[in-house]
Structure formats: structure tokens, C-alpha cells
Design a protein around this nucleic acid. Sequence first.
DNA 1: ACCTGAACACCGTTCAAGT
DNA 2: ACCTGAACACCGTTCAAGT
Lengths: 245, 245
Amino acid sequence: MIKNTRRVQRGEASLSRERIIEAAIALLDGAGESGLTFRALAERLATGAGAIYYHVDNKTDLLNAAADAIVAAVLPAPAAPATGDAPVVTAPDASVAAAADASPQTAVRAIALAVFDAIDGHPWLGSALMQAPSALPMVRILESLGQQIRALGVAESAQWQAVSALLHYIIGVAGQNAANAQTARARNAVRDDFLGAVADGWAQLDAVHFPFTRGIAARLRVHDDRADFLAGVDYILTGVSTAGL
Amino acid sequence: MIKNTRRVQRGEASLSRERIIEAAIALLDGAGESGLTFRALAERLATGAGAIYYHVDNKTDLLNAAADAIVAAVLPAPAAPATGDAPVVTAPDASVAAAADASPQTAVRAIALAVFDAIDGHPWLGSALMQAPSALPMVRILESLGQQIRALGVAESAQWQAVSALLHYIIGVAGQNAANAQTARARNAVRDDFLGAVADGWAQLDAVHFPFTRGIAARLRVHDDRADFLAGVDYILTGVSTAGL
DNA sequence: ACCTGAACACCGTTCAAGT
DNA sequence: ACCTGAACACCGTTCAAGT
């Protein structure tokens, strides 16, 4: 009687950090932030919960690794992969890399949009980046932006503030869009319907205390997240150029 | 034999939404985001966990109410308190209200700093605002900023994008500083020591792939969060003025 | 109407025991 | 070296039962 040891089967590799990260991303994409559980992960990987800890420090480590896999795939690698567990996800398209010979402003916009779109596709990434402002994925974005800010000719003494403002803005928008997506998901609503409901709430606010919010409610209903996001990037780029060169 | 019913004692009012929010803030300030627990809350209020649910929908509701109490106290009320549960916290100082007769730019900076300082004092507020981008506390900030953007003379068609960029930036920085504070707390380190460790890590990065980040590490060690934050606000204000008037 | 507190259905993490 | 899976110490939330 032939007994297959479970671990070595056709194609299915044994448990590894890489396979765990892959499964974590699948869980996060499929069921949102709350879908990532060591028990769900163990079931999907056909192993015990404890085994995962042999390859991963803890949940924070796992979430950071998942985030880094996405960010590394989406940003132009500075030259070559910097860490061992980078290419779990295949790069969707090389649009950012293609912008290498464009103006620094164009390149900054491309980086910003790459991050924005990545989070649009993986809302959990927004909270992950927000929670770990110093981890490797953030450093990747910082580095990409920084190289362009240098190319822009910003004085060295102003580079930190310029990059810092861009980075905080990009991650800030990302985090809030992620939160919106998460809230919409929790209510089993589509994002647009959810924002429509928010707009309804704003329109009904007290006219004496909230005149501006009431007036702007209609715009919330028809706004374009991506365009608004880019407008903010351009505000900052304009401000940086005016102040810093 | 005299038996005191526990509920009505000298000064100690019976359980109410207001007392619950007050206790929640104390817990959050004292022990961070993870310190807010229905069991800890019940103990502090000398009641059962279930009783709290009689006055509060769930944990999200409670967190939003706590956040709103702080934000409402810190921002200039548009005219008069808009909700019932506003003044749980007494306003620390009326610096923002005093800026009413200054220029719109100055007023925007004052609002931004008020939010920044509130989150500096209550790091959990950053994540709370980030998690609930449509709740009342955010609307308060939106309204305050919006009124100043109007006063600035921004064309109506551009007002949404201008306010949206400012709001996202302010809350984004807030959220990330909150995350830094939380991480530092989790490691039992002071914020500055934590950032110092991050800077050390940056300085040791691979020079080929991370030239910018390596170069900027020294600045991270000596930077001033508040000044950097304000620089970002000014970038956006400059951009808005250049593009929108 | 308001409160009690046990119970339910989960978590992340650890660890003795196996192979 | 790597994996198992029960156990531990928690969570938020519910709900029958009390006053």
C-alpha cells in the first residue's frame, strides 16, 4: 500500500515562508483584513497553526511581508531585488518602469498612481502601510520618490520635507480609501453606494453649523478618487517647486 | 442595616453614555488602543460588560464617540455644539478660535495644528480618524477647512479637491504619527529612540538600491514632526492658490 | 428601563510531543 | 529541522435572568 507523505506531492512544495505569504495575500484579497487568520491560513495550507510560526515571526511580520510583496512588484525596483522574498507576486505591468525617462514630475505621478492602484486592488494594503510607517514597503516608496525629488533639483536641505509631504499624502489617501473599502465591505455594499449614503448624510446636516459640508455633498457623490488624488499630488509638487528650488 | 444601592452614590452618577465615553478616553490615553476593552471598561465603571451595550452600539461606535469628544473640544465649534455628547472633554485652550480674524491661510494652519496636537496627545485618535473617514469627527474637520478654503476665494469647482487634499494630508500624517507612537509604546521605547533605531536601519541599507534613503537617514534623527507637517500644509496651500484662484 | 454575568464563538501565540 | 494540535489567555457580543 502506497502512502503519500502529505508534504511532497505533485508541484505542491513543502511549507515555506513564500507559500505562506502567497496564501496570506489570497486570504486578504478574498476576505479582507479580517480574513487573515492563522487558523484559516493553516487550513488553506493543510497544516497546523503552529507550523506557520516556524517560518513567520508573528502576524505583523506576515502582514508586512505580504505588503512588501505587492509594493515590490508594483514599484520599479531600484536596480535588482533587494530581499529574498520579493517576487511572490508577478508585476502586473511595467508602466512605472517605462516612465523612467520622463520628467521627474511625471515620474512622481506615476509612482503615486502605482501605489494608489495597488491599494485600490488590495484595500488591506492601505492599512498595512499605515500601520508600519517604517517597514520595508514604505522605504521602497520613500526611495522611489526621493530619487525623483533629487532629479527635480530640490535643494538638499528641503528634500526631506518634500519627500515626507508626498509620502504622507500618498499613504494617507491610500489608508483612507482602504478604510472606505473596508467599511463598504462590512456593510455588504458597493463602494459607490456607500459613498452615496455618506453624501446623503452630509446633505441632511444642520445648515447653520455645516454649510460647507452640506454644499459639497453633491460633489462627493460624483467625484473621481483617482483624479482627486492626483490633484493633491500636483498641489504638493507645485508647492515644492515654488518653495524649494 | 443600611444597604447602599451601588448606583446612586456621592457624586458618582449612574451609568450613562457620557460616563462610558469618559472612561474609554481614560483607558485609551493610559494604555493605548489595545487598552480599550469591554472588560476593562466594565471593571473601571464597576458594572458588567453587557451593561455597556445598553448605552453604546458596539466598539466602533464607542471609539467614534471618544474621537468626536476630543475633536469637538479641540476645533472651533462652527457656532454652537451640534450633538448631545460633545463636551465630555474640556477645551484645552482656545488658540484655534482666536485665529478667527486672521487670514484664511493662517486659519488653515491653526486647524491643521490643532488636529496634529490633539493626536500627539492622544495617539489612538489617529487610528480612530483613519478608520472612520466618514464619521462625525471627520466632518467637523472638513467643515472647518472648507469654510477657510471658501474664504480664501478658491473657485467653487476647485473647492472639493482643495479641501480633500488638505484633509487627506492632515489625517494621513496624523495616522502615521499615531502608528509610530503605538509601535514605540509596544516596544517600551520613547518615540525619539524608536525613530533613532529606524534611522540606524536606514543608514545601513544597501547603497546601490537605496541611495536616497541612506542619505536622508541622518535627517530623520533630527527632524521636527510639527515643522515638517506644517511644511506639507504650506505646499498644498501654495498649490491650491497657484492652481485655483 | 436598566443591569448582571455566564456563555458563545472566536482570536494570536505557545509548547510539549511527535517525525 | 520541521510539523502537529491541544491548550492558554484573551477578545467582542449576546442573552436569559434579575431588579
